[in-house]
Amino acid sequence: MLTVQGLTRCFGQVRAVDGISFEVRDGEIFGLLGPNGAGKTTTISMISGVLAPDAGQVLVDGVDIWERPKQVKRMLGVVPQEVAVYEDLTGRDNLVFWASLYGLKGADRRRAIDEALERVGLADRADDRVRDYSGGMKRRLNLSMGLIHAPKFLLLDEPTVGIDPQARLAILDVVREVARGGTTVLYTTHYMDEAEKLCDRMAIIDRGEILASGTLDELTRLAGEGDVLRVSGSFGAEDLRGKIAGIDGVEISRIGDGFALLSVVPEGPGLAQLLPRLLDGEAGIDDVSIQRSNLESVFIALTGRALRD
């Protein structure tokens, strides 16, 4: 089990990660979902022993990584957000180097390299220089380097950023396969659909804080059982309350600066009565959008902003 407790890290005046805690259970795929700049990479850097936290603790199978870094690092495989491969070397050279860092040698190393190359579909390009690879191939090589020593825990930091859909699917398939083999996976992403399809459980992170965590069902319930209406404009809170007064199944979830989120019970009369009132042009409402409950609506419900903002 991977346990993160009160992890905090500041860069100058900026609190990049602010006392976050979560657990990743053995064999599960745990997602850390949040927009760019939410603190995902800083969190992964602290968990993987690259960046010392200002406060908090990371326990891997009960061992603190900052107390016994080498012991813990041997259990971790890390796939960074950057394509961290040597482009002037071949794919195989990169894997030989990486395997050597973990003490693999001889026949064991050759077998591990062949398996890793086969798994990510690069066996036929293994002896080409990486600089001749496509972006997706580099990403797959990046992934294979994290798997070469068959780690117990695999940490993936946005491994599908900037690649084509086909390569993305290939990477997600490998992650699923690895997890099925018993590896515990911590997966960070800002792609809502990836988190929904891949993760058993997840935490939503924004501005260095964990806003919520749980399974997909548990999280979507946070946004309410029904639809979410996002209303934006220059209206006042009292104006909005006046508009929804007397309509059953509609309530204000959140009011922010220039926006409000309304929860509408599905299959009720609310939406049909509400929309004409909101759009009558008298309340200063410029835009109304409807969203089914998903991680996006959860994020909106929790932060008032869309995940992509």
Partner: peptide, 11 residues
């Protein structure tokens, strides 16, 4: 290029 950061995730 992030290679050092990656390297330091190894033992």
């Amino acid at each position: 290029r992030g290679l050092t950061r990656h390297l330091l995730t190894a033992p």
